[in-house]
């Protein structure tokens, strides 16, 4: 069982990393005309939580949506089609990289305006409580979103009305290039959140996927048991520039040393090593081969797929 879980988590994270490596290769050809906010570095968070809460949650996220989309949908055909602006994408090419979502898979919405999906998730959680279901809402957002009033308003509301929502702050310490040290007039988000009537999970030092997976299981159980929302604060390191497919250690706002420390605990490399030590080399390699093949095919399919027809421009503004 544990072995299967580890392989499943490895597959989920490997799919994210490999898909984004493919984007890095393809993007310079200028066929994916959509701004890329890459997920490289955050895979452990999204894979851990989404794998743990599959079928138990509806998900909401931000413009940094690649890993989340792949974790929830476990598919790459629609993913690449949307990035190429093709009609076979989940939004028929209308959304692109910043709004990847798939309500059919319970990835309800992602948004490019910071903080905007947080209250939406709270409304979604209200629905689950209202209808007395066992689902929760899970919303991913960055440390920058915590600067916004709407984060605090949403947290208050969820606590007040005891709504089943898991707030996940993916804390890379940066909003574009501006670090939390020059944006926050307080020391600890976790400490403040403990004054609210919610559960707080904030003892993470790395993005170890097994730890995060276990946290998500526990959070789900505690949200149901104590009838209150939860906030997870998980630090990670953004490997690439804020937007775009390249590294940016040359421009001087952060140091490469820091990156190397994080790279040493890269969640994908860590889990791979662990699986190899358990004599799972064959299983690992066959996952990697299958994923690589799947991505290669998806990219080809996306390139070959048609663009949406002109009349699509006006379709979907209003319900018919």
């Amino acid at each position: 069982m544990q072995k299967d879980l580890e392989l499943e988590l490895y597959q989920s994270m490997y799919r994210m990393r490999a898909a984004e490596r493919a984007i890095q290769q393809e993007y310079p050809n200028n066929q994916m005309k959509t701004p890329m906010h890459m997920s490289i570095g955050e895979e452990g968070i999204v894979a851990g939580i989404c794998t743990a809460l599959k079928e138990k949650a509806k998900f909401y996220g931000t413009y940094r949506s690649h890993a989340l989309y792949l974790a929830v949908t476990e598919e790459t055909d629609g993913f690449f089609a949307e990035l190429y602006g093709k009609v076979t994408g989940p939004a028929g090419g209308k959304a692109g990289s910043m709004h990847l979502a798939s309500p059919d898979h319970n990835l309800i919405m992602t948004s490019a305006v910071v903080g905007t999906t947080i209250p939406v998730a709270v409304g979604g959680a209200f629905r689950e409580k209202y209808m007395n279901t066992d689902k929760i809402a899970v919303v991913f957002f960055g440390d920058g979103a915590v600067d916004e009033g709407v984060f605090w308003e949403s947290l208050n509301l969820a606590c007040l009305w005891k709504l089943p929502v898991l707030f996940v702050c993916e804390d890379n310490g940066l909003a574009i290039h501006t670090p939390t040290s020059v944006r926050r007039g307080y020391d600890s988000l976790g400490k403040i959140a403990r004054q609210y009537n919610c559960l707080v999970y904030d003892s993470f030092e790395q993005t170890d996927v097994l730890t995060i997976h276990a946290m998500a299981k526990k959070a789900y159980a505690e949200i149901q048991r104590f009838r209150m929302p939860a906030l997870a604060i998980i630090p990670y390191y953004r490997y690439l520039e804020h937007v775009g497919v390249n590294e940016d250690f040359d421009v001087g706002y952060r140091s490469c040393d820091e990156f190397e420390q994080w790279l040493a605990k890269d969640p994908i490399a860590l889990l791979r090593r662990r699986l190899i030590n358990q004599n799972q080399e064959n299983a690992v390699v066959s996952i990697e081969d299958a994923v690589n093949k799947q991505i290669f095919i998806s990219v080809q399919k996306a390139k070959d797929a048609p663009f949406p027809r002109p009349e699509e421009l006006y379709r979907g503004v209003y319900g018919e």
Partner: peptide, 16 residues
């Protein structure tokens, strides 16, 4: 602009 939302995909953005 066309009376709709701005789509991401290029051929439709060109029409917009």
């Amino acid at each position: 602009f066309a009376p709709t939302h701005c789509p991401t995909t290029r051929p439709m953005e060109d029409l917009y």
